[in-house]
């Protein structure tokens, strides 16, 4: 059997054999879909109270993704734990003694985690969309409407990318405490403030999550960005790639 295939099998065994995988990914799905559904239900019942302007620019697709802001934190937790557990338990020494080719080790872990979060991300995005549209009723949109499928697929990609960004950052930071303390408040609060307050928006809107969410909006007025949906996602891809490369460099250079 090929060396890479063996390491991939090993990384799959690692990820499937700990509770935290199921917990974090299930939480991401349930919170995103559940909260999205709740917000859609409330919106549907108060739709007639909205101003005409709001009604005209109402983004039914984006509304059904409202739970992802919170659900993404569980995706980040998955990304942090899959890497930091290696360091906090000392498993990294066994892992690297078994696979001294550090590049192979890291990219196999990234690939296994990436496929898993992509599947869960897509599932989350599609469930949130269909449940949300059902609750919005006559105010909802169909998957075949212009830009909608792109937004829903983009939502899945967004969830996967945010987890992989966390994977890269945690390979740099190593400590679970440090990674959680930096990533959680950043994506829950700080980035939203920086991306929406007029004074910082010019720069803040290029942060990974602020750029990435653009792909999930169908109505351009929802986010008001100077770049298009795919460009936004591309900015997030660049951030994620940079984080992973940084993680790779740290793993390669530093003592385990």
């Amino acid at each position: 059997m090929n060396h890479t295939t063996r390491v991939l099998k090993s990384e799959w065994t690692k990820v499937r054999s700990v509770h935290s995988t199921v917990w974090t990914l299930a939480t991401a799905l349930i919170v995103s879909v559940g909260l999205g559904a709740l917000i859609c239900a409330v919106t549907a019942s108060t739709f007639d109270d909205m101003s005409t302007g709001d009604r005209l620019t109402f983004d039914a697709t984006y509304t059904s993704f409202a739970g992802m802001g919170l659900g993404q934190l569980a995706m980040i937790a998955f990304g942090v734990l899959i890497v930091s557990a290696e360091y906090s338990t000392g498993m990294i020494r066994n892992s690297l003694a078994a696979v001294p080719q550090r590049g192979t080790f890291l990219w196999c872990k990234v690939l296994i985690a990436g496929v898993l979060v992509l599947v869960v991300g897509m599932l989350t995005s599609f469930c949130a969309f269909f449940l949300g549209q059902a609750l919005l009723g006559s105010h909802g949109v169909g998957i075949g409407d212009p830009g909608v499928l792109r937004a829903v697929v983009g939502g899945g990609l967004y969830m996967a990318l945010i987890a992989m960004f966390a994977v890269g950052i945690t390979f740099v930071l190593r400590s679970p405490l440090l990674a959680f303390a930096i990533l959680m408040p950043f994506f829950f609060l700080i980035s939203n403030i920086l991306g929406n307050v007029e004074a910082t928006k010019k720069v803040g809107q290029y942060l990974p999550d602020q750029a990435g969410t653009t792909v999930m909006a169908v109505v351009p007025e929802t986010l008001d960005r100077p770049y298009g949906p795919w460009e936004g996602l591309l900015i997030m891809v660049a951030w994620t790639a940079a984080a992973l490369v940084a993680g790779f460099i740290v793993l390669k250079k530093r003592d385990a």
Partner: peptide, 23 residues
């Protein structure tokens, strides 16, 4: 090694299995 390096939440069998598979 002195620090044993075992994930407390991964069953003994799976711990050994993932090491075995990689080699």
């Amino acid at each position: 090694l002195e620090a044993k390096g075992v994930h407390g939440g991964r069953r003994a069998y799976d711990h050994l299995l993932c090491l075995a598979q990689s080699n």
